[in-house]
Design a protein around this nucleic acid. Structure first.
Length: 497
RNA sequence: GGUCGCGUAGCUCAGCUGGUAGAGCAGUUGACUUUUAAUCAAUUGGUCGCAGGUUCGAUCCCUGCCGCGAUCACCA
């Protein structure tokens, strides 16, 4: 649409390139030696003010031409600085070339730092080099005192052309810098606790470790179907079996499900496993990681989903049954599946007539409890029926397993269990899942014979946690959409109607 | 997938109860040696998301489609 107009501008700029080349100017030179980044130069201003030979480079972001003198701003990866250019200092040819530059061009500038009449630290330019000519106009954003005018705000365009979003919307850059700091902080936590960072297959012959529909692909040489992993759990357990006692992996997972504000087809989770520990240990550890993150980010309180969350306060703990009893107002000491189904119906909660006790309890929890869990809360003791990889609760009748999920602001942040290491029990449970699949439940887990054989070789008592990283970044950066914390979120292809 | 909303110049937006479009910035040309959303003057630029329908006439009303957003459903 309106390609013609845009093409006119592009054609004009291509003409400019021809003119430059005719004048002996290379519009795309190979390098430029900087003496400072913009921010370094500004930080060291007092020491280097007035010295010649300060060499900066960056993208031209604005320009104010006043006859024989001009001001401009360039931006590099560290920040922005104002330039002062005069015909007298630069000479007619270079000054004229400057006047014909476009916003979006990269330039190298050499000169000296000075302060303007209005007190702004500025580079007086003595030499100017074109570093890369822009031919496609950038979104036109004006900026004053950090405030943006006429911004680049179309969400669709921002996601599709993230590079433009990053150029003109500084807070977007901040989000992804923070994301990297969060990763670094988590790595640091595990590395200092003697965990081994590992990589396991993304292409898997069978998918497991979670309940979700997979993406399928095909390997030509082997002529076999492969799946993109939905989780790395079963491979990390194989490593525990193999003798690594503490492992973690940042796992890009792929789930062939719906997309919305909190779901992207590919997302990142971190999973970690440690031999000889149980879920009580893991709860303390997860809480420690959140406090470690808050410390590293230098922030205690985070605003998320309209709530203020203080991560330094102790996290709550309650069993799923206690919470359902409290919020659904049902006496679980006497209630059976029939009673729970009745409560579901009373609350207009969708539940299959043949759903079992565990599934019904989970349904009630999802609907009536989850949205109320604002303060960080560990929910413990999940029904075995919905936890095929978790170990039954010790000293109990086996209805519940040793599992917890962490909820903050009504959203789930971590899922962990004392891992099931009884190979006979595990086989039975996966066979039951397999039966559910045969009955049409596409999200029931697969029976991974190789994994079961691994378990039969013996896995020590083990605790494991999975934590969604994207959601964590949303919490810690105050973003309400997963697309705002993914550099390149999945989008539908653009088409012309 | 359901419901609601949105889609007009490169960007941000106007456009009345239907009469085939405007502004600011960006671009182009000119003026200007301390500006900073620079200013001043002139000027280029549009298949109004796409396709149908109603109408003498549609950016506007109707239907379908495409894309985005919100929400619900689904989703360890």
């Amino acid at each position: 649409m309106s390609e013609r107009t845009l093409n006119e501008i592009i054609d004009q700029r291509k003409e400019k390139i021809k003119t430059l080349v005719a004048d002996g100017i290379n519009p795309y030179p190979h390098k430029y030696d900087r003496s400072h980044t913009v921010t370094d130069a500004l930080d060291q201003f007092d020491d280097i003010e007035g010295k010649e030979g300060i060499r900066l480079a960056g993208r031209l972001m604005s320009r104010r031409v006043m006859g024989k003198a001009s001001f401009a701003n360039i931006m590099d990866g560290s920040g922005r600085i104002q330039l002062y250019l005069s015909r007298e200092e630069l000479g007619v040819d270079v000054y004229t070339m400057f006047k014909h530059l476009d916003i979006g061009d990269f330039i190298g500038v050499s000169g000296l730092l000075m302060t303007t009449r209005t007190g702004e630290k500025t580079l007086k330019v003595l030499e100017l080099t074109l570093l890369s000519k822009n031919i496609r106009p950038l979104p036109n954003v004006k900026e004053k005192d950090g405030q943006l005018f006429d911004g680049f705000e179309d969400k669709e365009q921002r996601y599709r052309k993230r590079y433009l979003d990053l150029i003109v919307n500084p807070d977007v850059k901040e989000t992804f810098i923070k994301r990297a700091r969060i990763y670094k902080s988590i790595r640091n936590f595990f590395d200092t606790h003697d965990y081994l960072e590992v990589e396991t297959p993304i292409l898997q012959p069978l998918y497991g470790g979670a309940s979700a529909r997979p993406f399928k692909t095909h390997h030509n040489s082997l002529d076999m179907e492969l799946f993109l992993r939905i989780a790395d759990e079963l491979y990390l357990k194989r490593l525990i079996i193999g003798g690594f006692e503490k492992v973690y992996e940042f796992s890009r997972n792929f789930r062939n499900e719906g997309m919305d504000r909190t779901h992207n087809p590919e997302f990142t989770a971190i999973e970690w496993y440690e031999a000889y520990v149980d879920y009580f240990f893991l709860m303390d550890q997860v809480e420690a990681i959140f406090k470690h993150l808050a410390h590293d980010l230098g922030q205690d309180v985070f605003e998320f989903n309209g709530h203020e969350i203080d991560l330094t306060k102790p996290f709550h703990r309650a069993t799923m049954a206690e919470l359902v009893q409290q919020y659904a107002k049902v006496d679980l000491s006497t209630a059976d599946a029939v009673d729970l189904l009745a409560v579901c119906r009373e609350n207009k909660i969708d539940a299959a007539t043949d759903a079992n006790y565990g599934q019904l309890l989970d349904a009630l929890f999802d609907e009536l409890v989850e949205p109320n869990l604002i303060e960080p809360t560990f929910v413990t003791e999940y029904p075995k029926a919905i936890s095929p990889l978790a170990k039954p609760k010790r000293d109990s009748d086996g209805t519940f397993v040793e599992r917890f999920e962490l909820f903050i602001a009504g959203a789930e942040f971590a899922n962990a269990f004392t891992e099931l290491n009884d190979p006979i029990d595990q086989r039975e449970r996966l066979e039951a899942q397999s039966a559910l699949r045969s009955a049409g439940d596409e999200e029931a887990q697969t029976l991974d014979e190789d994994f079961l054989q691994a378990l039969e070789s013996g896995m020590p008592p083990t605790g494991g946690v999975g934590m969604g990283l994207d959601r964590l970044v949303m919490l810690l950066t105050g973003n309400r959409s997963i697309r705002d914390v993914l550099l390149f979120p999945q989008m539908r292809p653009e088409s012309k109607g």
